[in-house]
Design a binder for these strands. Structure first.
Lengths: 154, 154
DNA sequence: GAAATGTCTACAAAATCAGTAGATTATGCC
DNA sequence: GGCATAATCTACTGATTTTGTAGACATTTC
């Protein structure tokens, strides 16, 4: 399970991605529109700012903007910023490698090889899926599915 | 990251899978050989027993045995027993579906579609990889890699 | 019946998660 | 310059989960 914080982050970025790319959007606006606790969202956006995903403007008419196009922000990079390493084992992390203290020998570890495959499968999806993809898939699903009572009465 | 407990469980099962299928192995033996705290391992093996992965014998000459061949125990089922649902979002869990309370509408959710793919990729690996596979991969790696100074001196 | 095993329940320290609180700083507008 | 409106920063807190420990109990074998 990903953290609640990561969910908020991804949905906040989706909110930013919808609508004008040049028009800053305020924390409170995003918070209410996406059901995110405002003070919590502040921290999240600060994290995303430090990592170069968004930028901010202060003062009146201030707010947040995407720094990159939504099609260039992957789920993988956001998850890494918010939740930390993606790997299922510390000894498989690219960004935060750490040897398992109880395990002796990574070659002889019976679980590492399998989780290596898991990690690769995960990364393949996470780094090929962008915020833009998420929005696109959602819109597509909404356009197809809810065809309620096909207004054919004229 | 999977939990320490899940790591222990998978490595304990690997230990059971190595060696005689009819010969019970004691908790303490597994614990020391795999660097697992004994009392913690007790609980883990009990969980695995309740779920029909292993069985136990009491008294002298007692211990634990695999109930199924190692080639029929998948990483996925073990992980589910020890760590709970595999899905990255509650609304994507097969065994423990729960709607996200903040999200309105799963079709319109911008992140659910992407994580659905992540979940499928994960499950594909986890349920096609068995304890026997883990052991096999480890043994293979050990046989290939450490070729130290190729004893060719006669 | 004693010794060796697994079984069960409860507890507890540490870490992580999911926020809250409140003071501070920068910006635009009058 | 001063006020309103935003973001920024630091610290704290309550709940939950993780990673174990402790100790009494039950069962089997010799």
């Amino acid at each position: 399970m990903i953290s609640q914080k990561a969910k908020y982050a991804l949905r906040a970025l989706s909110a930013l991605a919808r609508g004008d790319r040049a028009q800053p959007r305020q924390i409170s606006e995003i918070a209410t529109s996406q059901n995110i606790p405002k003070k919590f969202l502040e921290q999240i956006l600060l994290d995303l700012k430090r990592e170069g995903i968004v930028r901010s403007l202060r003062g009146k008419q201030g707010g947040y903007l995407l720094l990159k196009p939504a099609a260039e922000i992957t789920f993988g990079e956001v998850l890494r910023i918010i939740d930390g390493p993606l790997a299922p084992l510390p000894c498989l992390s690219i960004t935060a490698y750490r040897r398992c203290d109880d395990c002796d020998g990574e070659l002889s570890c019976e679980i590492r090889h399998v989780f290596h495959r898991v990690a690769e499968a995960e990364r393949a999806v996470l780094f090929s899926s962008t915020i833009a993809d998420g929005i696109h898939l959602a819109d597509e699903a909404m356009a197809e599915a809810p065809r309620p009572a096909e207004t054919v009465d004229g």
